[in-house]
């Protein structure tokens, strides 16, 4: 069976012009089947990006992409909860990233995003009964574990977080605001200065994590580079590419060639390494090791 490519939601606070240009180019040039839009990390950013989405969605659909509306991973304020509800009432496919959205979707189809805790087949089956049609499990799950869950849910698509800085944690506290000595409620959107997140180094200068407002990511970049046969053996039906400022069309083309069998994993690794990436490439989680372990499954 063929394996599709998904462009996940943009985690970072990109200005509206950057968002628009980025998705227009994706619509026209990127060989991906599905594109997620919407703010996932911080509800305070929504007034900036909200006006952009209608035209972006229209352009993506004209480009033949399936559009998914991603919802907030940590809705709290009533305005944020209302936004989640509105997305769920929309005709588009939605991605649910917090249990808050489940009642509003009321059995309609949805993507279970990596912020939902799907760790086993019983939880997956429960969500499938409530409408989950694609499941992208938490990033720390090994590939074989995802395969075991997928084997018990034959009619559901399983997706792996395949490229990008790994979303590792969410907090009620904004780390960009804290770093700049500001309160969250008057944060001045300093996260906008770091369009791939701000690298957090250890005291001996080792790149380790990246802060992005209330989100903490890895400094290193996940790169799941397996042959289509190996992915098929674990019943993986989609790979998710997470947007960064590097050339995402080039990233999508590399993965497309990998999935077509035109590029061996080791060649794909070299091609990715040639791009202007925010960190070195890792894939430890896929084999049940520390997520920070360098890419080794070749």
């Amino acid at each position: 069976m063929s394996i599709a490519l998904t462009l996940g939601p943009t985690f970072f606070h990109w200005p509206p012009d950057r968002l628009r240009d980025f998705y227009y180019r994706i619509a026209d040039e990127a060989p991906v089947e599905r594109v997620h839009v919407g703010e996932v990390v911080c509800g305070k950013r929504m007034p900036f990006s909200d006006p952009v989405w209608p035209e972006v969605i229209e352009r993506l659909e004209r480009g033949g992409k399936e559009v998914v509306l991603s919802t907030l991973a940590m809705p709290a304020l009533s305005r944020e909860r209302r936004a989640v509800e509105e997305f769920c009432a929309d005709g588009h496919l939605v991605e649910i990233n917090d249990v808050t959205a489940l009642p509003a979707r009321a059995g309609g189809p949805f993507v279970a995003g990596p912020f939902l805790n799907v760790y086993n087949e019983a939880t997956a089956q429960f969500l499938i009964r409530r409408g989950a049609s694609t499941i992208c499990p938490p990033v720390e799950l090994p590939l074989a574990t995802i395969g075991a869950i997928a084997a018990a849910c034959p009619d559901t698509e399983f997706e792996v977080f395949a490229f990008g800085r790994l979303p590792l944690a969410l907090s009620g506290r904004c780390y960009h605001a804290r770093l700049h000595g500001l309160h969250k409620d008057s944060c001045q959107f300093t996260c906008e200065q770091d369009p791939d997140g701000l690298v957090v180094e250890t005291l001996n200068d080792q790149a380790f994590l990246a802060m992005n407002g209330v989100q903490t990511l890895s400094a290193q970049v996940q790169a799941v580079l397996f042959s289509p046969a190996d992915l098929d053996a674990q019943r993986i039906r989609r790979l998710r590419l997470s947007p960064h400022t590097c050339d995402m069309v080039a990233v999508a083309r590399i993965y497309r060639a990998l999935l077509a069998g035109d590029l061996a994993p080791v060649e794909a690794l070299a091609r990715l390494g040639d791009l202007d990436l925010p960190g070195t490439l890792v894939d430890g989680y896929t084999r049940g090791a520390a997520g920070s372990q360098p890419v080794a499954c070749l």
Partner: peptide, 16 residues
């Protein structure tokens, strides 16, 4: 915990 409990993978990222 300063991170949202049950949704934090910092430990496994460093240690597995």
């Amino acid at each position: 915990c300063v991170m949202m409990e049950g949704r934090c993978h910092l430990s496994s990222y460093a240690t597995g």
